[in-house]
């Protein structure tokens, strides 16, 4: 199982490469650029967060409004991720394992939320559920609040994270073909047995990859949520919105303390993403060897 060879290029192999000074120059330039635009912001978050010491840091995190923002963010992700996970699996089953007319158009439609500005994503829900929107009067008559309330935040987040899992699974499942499933059926497995015992083990790393990205975006979404939330402290603020409020109140240390939670989340996301990518490549190259 020599996997992951795809990325390991044979640098230095053969005479065909650049002179050493060119190589060092290019590496230095690339690293300088990345240090300036990636590492410095990342470091800045944590340095600023701990600017006033650990005490102040923990104090900022224990603040009731912050706690409630964390709770709301967790709730939002807990609703969004399963919804989009289920959708992603179902959609990729239909798209990758069957062929039908209009398939590539359907894939484009699924990708749509990626190309819509977050602000517009929030706005469309205001246009439907807001006071002046299609359902606004009816909702008000029945005393249901969606915009400037939790359901609106969840809806907008579902929209912006909609494609993550599906677009990860579709190409993966396409690359795996149908033969293993067909083999399972000829051996007498039912539809569900085929999915859980044959399809699922082959896509589990792809699922993890999609879920982790979907979760990161769900917890970190700002633009769309900011339009529909109404910014009610302690009730309709997610972590990113709480960061904004603290920052605008010039409470920088607290703002960065809360922001550091999200930065940690980002680092964890990257770590899991890297591992699942590696595992994914492993399973793909094994599949490739088998062909």
């Amino acid at each position: 199982m020599q996997a992951g060879k795809l990325t390991q290029r044979s640098e230095g192999k053969g005479a065909i490469t650049e002179p050493a000074w060119v190589r060092y120059l290019l590496i230095t330039a690339a690293l300088a650029f990345l240090a300036l635009f990636l590492l410095m912001p990342l470091a800045a978050v944590f340095v600023q967060a701990l600017d006033k010491g650990w005490e102040a840091y923990l104090e900022a995190l224990k603040e009731p409004d912050t706690i409630s923002a964390i709770r709301l963010t967790l709730i939002t992700a807990a609703v969004c991720v399963p919804l989009n996970l289920f959708f992603g699996i179902v959609a990729s089953w239909a798209i990758a394992k069957f062929s039908f007319r209009g398939k590539s158009f359907l894939i484009t439609l699924i990708d749509l939320p990626f190309s819509v500005s977050p602000v517009v994503s929030g706005l469309i829900y205001v246009l439907i559920f807001g006071l002046q929107g299609w359902l606004g009067p009816w909702l008000q008559a029945h005393d249901i609040k969606i915009i400037f309330a939790v359901p609106g935040i969840v809806l907008a987040t579902v929209f912006v994270t909609f494609p993550f899992i599906a677009r990860e699974l579709i190409p993966l499942m396409e690359s795996q073909g149908r033969e293993e499933e067909e083999a399972a059926l000829t051996l007498g497995a039912s539809g569900l047995q085929t999915f859980f015992r044959v399809t699922f083990p082959n896509i589990k790393w792809g699922i993890l990859y999609g879920v982790i990205l979907c979760n990161a975006r769900a917890m970190g979404e700002f633009g769309a949520v900011s339009v529909v939330s109404g910014h009610v402290r302690g009730s309709t603020n997610t972590i990113p919105l709480q960061v904004e409020i603290l920052y605008n109140e010039y409470n920088y240390a607290a703002a960065f303390a809360v922001a550091s939670l999200l930065a940690l989340l980002a680092l964890v996301t990257l770590a899991i993403k890297t591992v699942s990518e590696w595992k994914l490549q492993q399973s793909i190259s094994v599949a490739g060897k088998e062909r």
Partner: peptide, 17 residues
């Protein structure tokens, strides 16, 4: 398929990897 009780050997084997 499941009810036919056929053994099918696929061209590329389709082993569960």
């Amino acid at each position: 398929v499941q009810e036919r009780q056929v053994g099918f050997v696929f061209q590329h084997y389709a082993l569960f990897r």
